[in-house]
Design a protein around this nucleic acid. Structure first.
Length: 528
DNA sequence: GTAGCCTTGATA
DNA sequence: TATCAAGGCTAC
């Protein structure tokens, strides 16, 4: 593909890639200046799940309506751009699916008009974009202004102590909203940390130019190295997703070639097929292996996430004046913001989740978003953090003792509880298969109120549960209780996430949380 | 088959 | 009532 980093087999950058922005017209209606994620043409609006151009909209519609079965004459990696998009419909369709276009948005009854069931998702996407627009210099209703003198003077060790009204009023709407994911970041705002925030921000936001995601892998490690003189201790950034020394590293990825979850227009997905056991199917162990491998396919690459966050931070910084740099807390929030967004997209792009009604998808995500964030944080710590440090998505490490010594009671408690859990999971040698299973178990929660397809959710949870059990038995035959030990950690994850939500809601009631963030929307939905 | 423009109609 | 994301139409 001509787009750097694009691989038809892999989950692609989300349609709302940070590099793509919307501009507000004078009338207030956002005009898309984004390029189509499939071919790069001008976006004409939301079509079948995301912003695309008119031609790709039409192409996708025709393909789905006519149940087209395309075949690529090359290696299924044909370039896809404005001039070449007509050459290979197979790769074009693959790319449509890979970036997130949804077959189910093409109406079977061909009814015209009206809004589709994706309205809430489109709305959320717009809100996120609008949020970025607000943060453009000179167009924002309020500018991001952090770290006033008053803020720095706060030393009282109370978790809910807040900045003076003046200070709060000058804060970014985005500033606090996902800090629960990184308790240390909250601590840094609540009590002055011995971190030179300005220096940190400058460092973080001045990596080498990051023109496109595909190049980030090459620039990132060097950049991290460069940050060695920061207040944080840093470790080399990961070049791939968790691979740590457990017996599971020898886990066979898959015994048969597995296409992208949405690789063909047929109604049954590879994942669905993997879930259906017939008398002809391979042994259960192989099925479990395939199933887990396919669950893993949707996992976001840590280095890509890292690059995305860095690019976002860099862009934010570029829009600021010399004396208006993001402080450490804002940076942490940015990190958490991207992480949460990535988790929502992860869920939305997983085949099993897509099979649910959109209404169910919404309520499930609204129910478990904070648990997913906590799990994500835990996995990052288990995989990358040094003992006694918290590993950030950007590859930086902060010493836990520093945070605890200066944070308030609730925050210290949160950090301690989280670190205890990290220790337990490290002792259990949690691997990426088990981690992804835990995420699925949290996501597919049949006990969530107002889930319509409860049975479907329940069956998925049972499937994942069984796969997790079989995997732990296979990978740790001498450790019969690993499965039980893993499940026993989930209540603590839940508890921590609830504590975090409570804390954030308190801040929200005091006006500290932004009105147009995903996090606020999630909090609102729960408390309403 | 493609892609730009038009029509439709549920929803905010 | 305006919006906007569906499907339809049609020149190419």
């Amino acid at each position: 593909m001509d787009r750097p980093g694009y691989h038809p087999q892999l989950p692609q950058p989300l349609p709302h890639h940070p590099a793509q922005e919307l501009k507000s017209e004078p009338c207030g209606r956002p005009e898309s200046e984004e390029s189509c994620p499939i071919c790069g043409d001008k976006v004409s609006g939301y079509h079948y799940g995301l912003l695309t151009c008119e031609s790709c909209k039409g192409f996708f519609k025709r393909s789905v309506q006519n149940n087209k079965q395309y075949t690529c004459a090359e290696q299924q990696n044909c370039p896809m751009n404005l001039s070449q998009r007509k050459r290979c419909p197979s790769c074009r369709f693959q790319k449509c699916l890979a970036v997130g276009m949804r077959r189910e948005a093409v109406r079977a009854d061909r009814m015209r008009g009206g809004r589709n069931k994706f309205g809430p998702l489109y709305r959320r996407d717009r809100q996120m974009k609008q949020q970025r627009v607000y943060h453009q210099p000179n167009t924002a209703p309020y500018r991001i202004k952090m770290e006033t003198t008053q803020t720095h003077r706060l030393t009282a060790p109370h978790d809910l102590h807040l900045m003076s009204s003046q200070t709060s009023a000058s804060l970014s709407s985005e500033a606090f909203h996902q800090s629960h994911m990184y308790p240390s970041s909250i601590g840094q705002l609540e009590a002055p940390m011995p971190l030179d925030c300005t220096v940190s921000a400058d460092r973080v936001l001045t990596p080498p130019a990051l023109p496109c995601p595909g190049l980030y892998h090459h620039t990132f490690p060097g950049f991290v190295q460069e940050k060695g003189d920061m207040a944080f201790s840093c470790s080399p950034g990961p070049t791939n997703y968790p691979m740590y020394p457990t017996p599971n590293n020898s886990f066979t990825p898959r015994s048969t070639p597995v296409s992208s979850p949405c690789s063909t227009p047929s109604s049954t997905t590879p994942l669905s097929q993997a879930l259906i056991q017939t008398p002809e199917t391979p042994p259960a162990a192989t099925l479990t292996t395939n199933f887990l491998s396919q669950l893993l396919e949707g996992e976001q690459d840590e280095s890509q996430l890292c690059a995305k966050v860095l690019a976002s931070l860099q862009r934010e910084q570029a829009n600021r004046g010399k004396h208006d740099r993001l402080n450490t807390f804002s940076i942490m929030c940015k990190m958490a913001d991207q992480t949460l967004f990535g988790l929502v997209e992860w869920a939305r792009n997983t085949t099993l989740f897509k099979e649910l009604k959109v209404e169910d998808q919404m309520v499930l995500l609204q129910s478990c978003w904070s648990e997913l964030l906590v799990l994500d944080h835990l996995c990052r710590q288990v995989t990358y953090s040094k003992d006694g440090c918290i590993y950030l998505v950007t590859g930086q490490q902060i010493e836990v003792s520093t945070i605890i010594s200066q944070a308030g009671v609730t925050l210290s408690s949160l950090v301690s509880r989280t670190q205890d859990l990290v220790s337990k999971l490290k002792a259990l040698q949690l691997d990426r298969h088990e981690f992804v299973c835990l995420k699925y178990l949290v996501l597919f929660n049949p006990d969530v109120k107002s889930v319509q397809s409860r049975r479907q959710v329940e069956q998925t949870q049972e499937r994942v549960n069984r796969a997790l059990m079989e995997h732990t038995q296979q990978s740790h035959p001498g450790y019969s209780d690993k499965f039980g030990q893993l499940l026993l950690r989930l209540p603590e994850v839940r508890s921590i996430s609830l504590q975090v939500e409570d804390y954030l809601y308190q801040r929200h009631l005091l006006g500290d949380l932004p009105c147009n963030s995903l996090l606020t929307e999630m909090l609102h939905t729960k408390h309403n």
